[in-house]
């Protein structure tokens, strides 16, 4: 066994040497068998991406195009394979989205292209790829990141979906505003029956769990913003669609409850420093529907106010809410047919789709803004828990 003499970090060049025959072992141990919830919890964020890039640098340094190609292909295929196998596990998908993006950023940061070198230290510039231009592979990896992002959104949607109607519409946290329940309200009165139902708190806790997982994995802040905007869109769209289909959700008190719930979601955004990510704006149709439940709906002036307020709702949606509106007590009345006709006349000239329900499957296009890292590759050490002792620091 050779004696391991510790070398000073400045003597390393930020590369990892491996034998061709160890490539399968590398992707197996680092990608296929790595458990984001186990070993990976204590890793520096993006470590698998840095390790793979440092291996790639060594193949590039040796001018071995075949080794570069097979490593990139094995890496991409292994990431796809693990996502096929564990694609319904949010932590796995988030972990590989963060690492795929980090790998993509490394390919840019060390590409030698001046546009990506602006923030590099001199030492980092010395670590640029020497022999190969991997621009085409960067495109493939960017496509892979888009696929992983879409999978992350689906995964998150599967978790959130069952909570939304219960937490945003059915569960009442404001006591005593309902008065007489509108007919058809399916509120359970027994506290035992309430156990196991989702509340707004369940949604907020889940959003917090998604957020902290992504932060822990070193996901780019710009990407987190896009995920959160998409989450809020889904919450808003599913809530509004259910409101548009359920008479028992169209009352003054439900409007109050929804506005309170929206304020709590906004509070969550503020707490996470995400007020400018566009998430709040995705709730606008829901906010306006809640306001519509609460405003007066009688005179021509009321009709005018409604038409200038509900710009994020389609005519079909406005008319549907007015038709479904159900008084909760004897002081209120149903919306008159003539009032609804007035609204329809006023909105006749609007250019819009006749769409009633929102598309809950819509996904905003994602971008991965370049995010260079200040980490010095030569300082990276590989924890023994990764079982990569066959890699040699160079």
């Amino acid at each position: 066994h050779p004696v391991n003499i510790p070398r000073r970090e400045k003597d390393f060049q930020g590369m990892l040497e491996y034998k061709k025959e160890d490539e399968l072992k590398l992707v197996k141990n680092l990608i296929l068998e790595l458990k984001p919830r186990g070993v990976a919890v204590n890793l520096i964020p993006g470590l698998p991406a840095y390790i793979l890039f440092m291996c790639l640098r060594h193949a590039d340094y040796n001018n071995d195009d075949q080794k570069v190609r097979t490593l990139l292909t094995s890496t991409i295929n292994s990431i796809k394979k693990i996502l096929k196998k564990r694609g319904d596990d949010f932590e796995t998908v988030s972990f590989w989205l963060a690492n795929t993006c980090r790998f993509l950023h490394c390919l840019k940061q060390y590409s030698g292209d001046e546009a990506f070198m602006k923030h590099n230290t001199q030492r980092q510039n010395e670590h640029s790829l020497s022999n190969f231009d991997l621009a085409e592979y960067r495109q493939v990896i960017s496509d892979l990141a888009i696929q992983i992002y879409q999978q992350l959104i689906k995964c998150m949607e599967n978790i959130l979906q069952p909570m939304i109607v219960s937490g945003m519409l059915e569960h009442e946290t404001i006591q005593g505003v309902s008065g007489v329940k509108p007919t058809g309200l399916r509120k359970r009165t027994s506290s035992i029956a309430d156990e196991g139902t989702y509340t707004l708190d369940s949604i907020l806790r889940q959003l917090g769990a998604f957020h902290s997982t992504m932060c822990q994995h070193g996901t780019d802040p710009e990407l987190i913003k896009q995920v959160v905007k998409q989450q809020f869109y889904i919450i808003g769209a599913v809530t509004l669609n259910n409101l548009l289909l359920r008479k028992d959700m169209c009352s003054w008190s439900k409007g109050m409850q929804i506005r309170y719930n929206v304020s709590q979601l906004e509070e969550w955004l503020r707490d996470k420093g995400l007020m400018t990510c566009g998430a709040k704006e995705t709730l606008e149709p829901l906010i306006q529907a809640a306001q519509l439940l609460q405003v007066k709906k009688k005179t021509d002036e009321d009709a005018e106010a409604i038409c200038s307020m509900c710009l994020a709702l389609t005519t079909a949606q406005i008319v549907k809410v007015l038709n479904l509106y159900t008084p909760v007590n004897e002081f209120e009345e149903r919306v008159s047919v003539s009032f609804i006709r007035t609204i329809q006349t006023r909105l006749r000239d609007r250019c819009e789709s006749p769409q009633l329900l929102m598309d809950t499957k819509m996904i905003y296009p994602v971008t991965f803004p370049f995010s260079p890292s200040s980490l010095a590759l030569e300082t990276i050490q590989i924890p023994s828990s990764l079982n990569l002792a066959f890699l040699t620091r160079v």
Binding site: V68, K81, D133, V140
Partner: peptide, 29 residues
């Protein structure tokens, strides 16, 4: 400053890689 330009490595598309991957997956049970 570099003395010579880097060599562009042609890459298959993600879809092409997927096709390549099918034969690979058939091997595993």
């Amino acid at each position: 400053p570099r003395s010579r330009p880097r060599v562009l490595l042609k890459a298959p598309t993600l879809a092409e890689m997927e096709e390549m991957n099918i034969s690979e997956e058939e091997e595993s049970p």
